[in-house]
Amino acid sequence: MKNLKKWSAVFSVAGLTVAGISLATTVVADDFANVEVPASGLNERFQRYGAVVPVNSLQLVGYGAGKLTKQDVTELLGVPNDSLATEQDNSWQYNVNLPLNDEDYLVCQYQVSFTQQILVSSEWRRPQCNRLFSELSQHAPPQILSFSADFLFEFDSYALSSQGRRELQQAVQDAQASLGGRSVLVTGHADQIGSAEYNMHLSEQRAKAVVEALIQGGGNPEKITYVGRGENDSIVSCPGLVGVSLKECLAPNRRVDILFNRNT
């Protein structure tokens, strides 16, 4: 969603990989409706009022294309600005206050679009809003922790191992202590072994188990969102392999990603 400075820091902790990520630049929407009104005709109903939305929440929405549901977006951004928007609508619009300094802000229109209840894109109406958001985001680029599901769980299970729970809690506590991040998106992933429906359920339950462990470790439940992606977003494919060889080859696809930001 943003044009961030590229940076990364990678290290391993018992099956854990940590890496900084940069997000794709937002495409400014061309399909926002424009209303032509003479300046003399502007009145109260044409004045735009925005909501204060944490920058990290907007970052999570930008990262969440193909992952977040309408409910997830509502939890991050609130209800759409248009009071007539419904759960069935595929596009929602928000008026967002982006800070310019300690006292002033720029009211920007922000649109999110869905296909079959899943977020597919997000964009700012004006280039100046996109630039301002990029500048704000550069102060706190999001960080992602990626855990091997084979380290956290037994195969075909969503019960966290004792060792996996300890390492998970410690790694997240250490990362948050250094980054100061409090908003978290947990995404579960599965491999292609088994049916798509079963893999989606397994990835959701694994993400939920990680969230519960983070909360037990002191995480704020109001700041944690989770989603399952099943066998989507695969890292590797293993054509021609079967049995144990296939399971071992597909291991990178079995993972849990935790995304969080410096901003509160």
Rank of each mutant, 00 (worst) to 15 (best):
residue 191 D to H: 03
residue 19 A to R: 10
residue 90 N to K: 07
residue 259 L to T: 12
residue 23 L to Y: 02
residue 151 F to Q: 09
residue 240 G to R: 04
residue 150 D to N: 14
residue 132 L to Y: 04
residue 124 W to T: 03
residue 31 D to G: 03
residue 65 A to W: 00
residue 73 V to K: 01
residue 67 K to E: 03
residue 217 G to R: 04
residue 8 S to A: 12
residue 16 L to F: 00
residue 153 F to L: 05
residue 46 F to C: 05
residue 123 E to Q: 15
residue 86 T to C: 08
residue 204 E to L: 12
residue 143 Q to M: 15
residue 109 Q to G: 08
residue 18 V to C: 11
residue 168 L to A: 11
residue 191 D to V: 04
residue 53 V to H: 03
residue 136 L to W: 05
residue 243 G to K: 01
residue 148 S to N: 11
residue 233 D to T: 01
residue 70 K to R: 14
residue 247 K to T: 05
residue 177 A to M: 15
residue 15 G to D: 01
residue 8 S to N: 10
residue 233 D to C: 07
residue 263 N to V: 09
residue 139 H to K: 13
residue 63 Y to A: 07
residue 39 A to S: 10
residue 201 H to S: 11
residue 205 Q to R: 15
residue 185 L to W: 01
residue 75 E to V: 05
residue 262 R to T: 14
residue 87 E to M: 14
residue 95 N to I: 04
residue 194 G to S: 09
residue 10 V to C: 10
residue 7 W to Y: 12
residue 33 A to T: 13
residue 103 E to M: 12
residue 58 L to A: 13
residue 191 D to F: 06
residue 145 L to F: 09
residue 175 A to N: 01
residue 221 P to D: 07
residue 213 A to G: 06
residue 81 N to T: 10
residue 17 T to A: 15
residue 203 S to E: 03
residue 61 V to D: 00
residue 122 S to Q: 15
residue 155 F to V: 10
residue 224 I to P: 06
residue 11 F to Y: 15
residue 157 S to D: 03
residue 243 G to C: 05
residue 139 H to N: 12
residue 192 Q to R: 14
residue 183 S to E: 08
